[in-house]
Write a protein that binds this DNA or RNA. Structure first.
Lengths: 208, 208
DNA sequence: AAAAAAATCCCGGAAAACAGGGGTTTTCTT
DNA sequence: AAGAAAACCCCTGTTTTCCGGGATTTTTTT
């Protein structure tokens, strides 16, 4: 019996997943959680799943960070990411941080079952569109999602609100030079050369 | 018997919805479709539902446009929007274009059933978080999602890619002045005063 | 406690975007 | 076929961002 935990904040989706997984008698969904905190607590206290099906966009933490944390403590648990997005950097970041599978939410039910069985065999499972997304990108310049600092995020949000450097500096009680430094660093981390692109990418990666 | 059609591109979600709706014996899901085109065709040819449960983000058309189109041809059909987003302009645009309900995807199953029954009684149904989102905004300056032209969308995308006005002008074989005009119009339509904000909002409204 | 990372501050010149006016020609819609 | 909307073009001055270097002080992590 393969013990599976579902981490997903949409009850309807959870319902659908459970329903699909019920059709495979070797799979047992032993629990479901709507956010990162509760699943971490459950792992601490009682649950010992073989596989975690995890939505990438949770209300409290990003699936990327949650994956990192879980794999650090429980390296045997296989994690399969569930996502609506097929952006290459998202996929790459998840896999790099320990996910064994990546399935888009528009996948059919049997893809999920296949994914679970594949990762239980110790292999990696990517759904078709995910493979496409990775293939089309140059293997060498695979981009991960940049790690941005608290302050950078704060400034990014203010930029997104339409504030100018001067206004941001005033609001945060720091010098305009500092704001410009953060701006510069953000552009560098995202590999672009204007803030508009930074904001667009950040929105895409749900960093805003 | 209330005849319901589900329009949603995630099979797992469809599965979940059907499962939930099965618990109410007065509701009959007579069909489901994964995109706008197929549901329009079905309405043309055979289906006569009382209610359509519609995902706002479909692969081919926006739920907003699809709602407009369906209500124009079949004014008796009640449409309930299903969405992950609680952005005020999205909600407002959907309701303005004829939707009778708006339910967030993180809602519980019984909210959906309640929504269906409410709209069948001729009333409007908004889930709790949706009501919150509308309440917090000033009733007078409720913003709808701007209608942008083909050209503006094109330019918006190029801006998002990080191109400068000059580069865009070159690529589209038009003058830089024209590009600046479009930029200006975009800012005006979105009610902001720099392109970065435009891009952020466009991303939010899934216009990019 | 040492090393690394983050946050802060500084400058000047070049490039781009914004603001706020003007107008003409296509292309839809009615 | 008329009117409206979209797409196009033009100008000048001002503001803001970008790029290219710096450097110092806090935090955080190891």
């Amino acid at each position: 019996m393969i013990k599976v935990i579902v981490v997903e904040d949409h009850p309807i989706m959870v319902e659908g997943l459970k329903n699909i997984l019920r059709t495979d008698l070797t799979i047992d969904v032993i629990g479901d959680y709507g956010n990162g905190k509760s699943v971490l607590q459950a792992l601490e206290e009682k649950e010992h799943p073989d596989v975690i099906l995890m939505d990438v966009n949770l209300p409290d933490v990003s699936g990327i960070n949650l994956t990192t944390e879980i794999k650090k403590k429980y390296e045997d648990i296989r994690i399969i990411a569930l996502s609506v997005h097929d952006e290459q950097p998202v996929i790459h970041s998840m896999l790099q941080n320990g996910a064994s599978g990546y399935v888009l939410k528009n996948a059919l039910g049997n893809e999920i079952i296949k994914a679970i069985n594949t990762v239980m065999d110790g292999e990696e499972y990517l759904c078709t569109s995910t493979r496409e997304a990775l293939k089309s990108a140059d293997q060498d310049l695979l981009k991960a999602i940049p790690r941005i600092t608290r302050r950078e995020k704060e400034i990014l949000q203010l930029i997104g609100k339409g504030l100018t450097t001067i206004q941001i500096a005033e609001q945060l009680f720091i010098s305009t030079h500092t704001v410009e430094s953060h701006r510069k660093n953000l552009m560098e981390k995202f590999g672009v050369n204007n803030t508009t692109s930074v904001v667009k990418l950040a929105a895409e990666y749900k960093l805003l």
